[in-house]
Simulated scan of single mutants.
Amino acid sequence: MAWSYRKRIRIIPGVHLNISRRGISTTIGVKGASLNFGPRGTYLNTGIPGSGLYNRQRISPARSTTPQHIPQDVAVLEPASRGNIFSVAPDEVTSNDMQGIKDTIIAAHQQKKELTLDLEKVKMALASSRLKLTLSYIFLIGWIVKKVSQQLKDAIAAQQNAIHQISEQLENSSMTMDVEFDEGMKGKFDALSEAFKRLSAADKVWDVTSAVSQNRVAARSAASTLIERRQVSIGIRNIPDISAAIAPLWLKNANGADLYFYPAFLIMYDSRDQFGIIGYDELDFDYGPIRFVEDGPVPRDTQVIDRTWAKVNRDGSRDKRFKDNYQIPIVKYGRIKLRTRNGMHEEYDFSNYEATELFSNAFLNYVKALKS
């Protein structure tokens, strides 16, 4: 009737990020594999500690990131299913030099999954032992045969101890990420974080999921582009299985994996089994203002820059053939575009253009400093 539990767990290696003007050095675990990002591209450094043997391999070329301005008038498109602005599955976008970090996160998730199942089994065994002990006293077995009740008590104590141990192991089954900045880069990342906080306070944030051209003359409209957009949330939010000293900047994705900006990379995260990691050297980040024909309520933090009509002539004047033709404000929103060669394609609109510009410049300055 004795009960025992023994569980071997792996120590999940931590990730240490050293961020300076010379680039990013990423060390996984204790064996010293590191990634360096710089103006000449991304390199993987591997070696055997203490041996004096090291290898340096070029992974990808350096990339440039520049803002893009979008001058055309835009209006709302009727909702479609998924839209034509979306990314491929997140597990297809991982940068080659980020696979080690991804494998570490997967190992943490798998161990946590196994431990969760073990915890449920031990809890069930504990409930069974307690029931048997109660029944033994009801039927006087526990009073008469002291050995039976003692064995059940020993099993209960062992199961309670196992639950405590598994619970501790669950708390430690995550990838620990710590970040070390040099003084200059710390200031730039702090500026980026503050700019994101202001951006997250925007009255409206939309994920743009579709964009199609429109014949303005045929539609009698001032807008040359129609978009489908869905309001989303953004903020500071952690990912399961990652214990990070600095919580990532989070953007909800309406038709795909959410975006999490860490100091050294971007994670597209759909679930614990579906995610990808993108180095900033592979990310194309564009931003700019858009003129939006807003047929709905104008957000509180949005600037009205012009007026048009629901139905217009070729020259933009009011089409008087429509009796109930009404005036519509044209507002200035901010747009951010994110792309990679591996298939990431996301666009977001923000009601506060000034906050969009502030965040975008802070992000570009931060990434530029990593490559300088």
Rank of each mutant, 00 (worst) to 15 (best):
V145R: 14
S95I: 03
V76P: 05
G100E: 00
A162V: 06
S149H: 04
S149L: 07
H164S: 13
W143I: 10
W143C: 05
D154G: 14
Q150L: 14
F139K: 10
Q150I: 15
W143R: 10
E78Y: 05
D154S: 15
N96L: 14
K121G: 07
P79L: 03
D73V: 12
M98Y: 05
D154R: 08
V74N: 03
A158P: 00
K123R: 14
E120T: 15
L131M: 10
A108H: 01
H164T: 14
D154I: 12
V145C: 07
I101S: 04
F86W: 04
Q160T: 14
I105N: 03
A80T: 15
R130I: 13
G142R: 07
A80P: 02
A89G: 01
T94D: 01
K132Q: 12
R130H: 04
P90R: 06
L133V: 06
L126I: 06
E78L: 08
S81P: 04
G100P: 00
L131V: 05
V93N: 02
S149Q: 05
G142T: 09
P79G: 06
N161H: 07
V88I: 14
I101W: 04
E92H: 12
T116V: 02
L135T: 13
W143D: 06
V76R: 10
L135V: 13
L117V: 15
F139P: 05
D91Q: 10
I105V: 15
D97C: 09
A155N: 07
I138N: 04
L117Q: 12
S128E: 14
L115D: 02
H164A: 15
G142D: 03
I85D: 01
I70N: 12
G100H: 00
L115W: 08
Q151Y: 06
L140R: 06
I141P: 01
Q150R: 15
S149P: 05
I85Q: 05
V145Y: 10
P90W: 02
V145S: 09
K153D: 11
K147D: 12
F139G: 12
F86G: 11
Q110G: 02
L77M: 09
V122R: 07
K153A: 11
Q150P: 01
A125W: 00
D97I: 10
I163H: 01
E92L: 14
S87W: 00
L152W: 06
A127K: 11
A157H: 04
D154P: 04
K102Q: 09
E78A: 13
I70A: 08
K153T: 13
D73A: 15
S87N: 02
A155C: 05
H164M: 12
I156H: 08
L135I: 13
L117S: 13
S95H: 04
L77Y: 01
K123F: 10
N84I: 02
A89I: 06
I163V: 11
I144P: 03
Q72W: 09
D73K: 14
S95F: 01
S128P: 00
I141F: 13
I138A: 15
P79Y: 01
A89C: 03
K147E: 11
V93G: 02
D73N: 15
A107K: 06
N161E: 14
F86T: 10
I144C: 04
A108M: 03
N84S: 06
E92V: 09
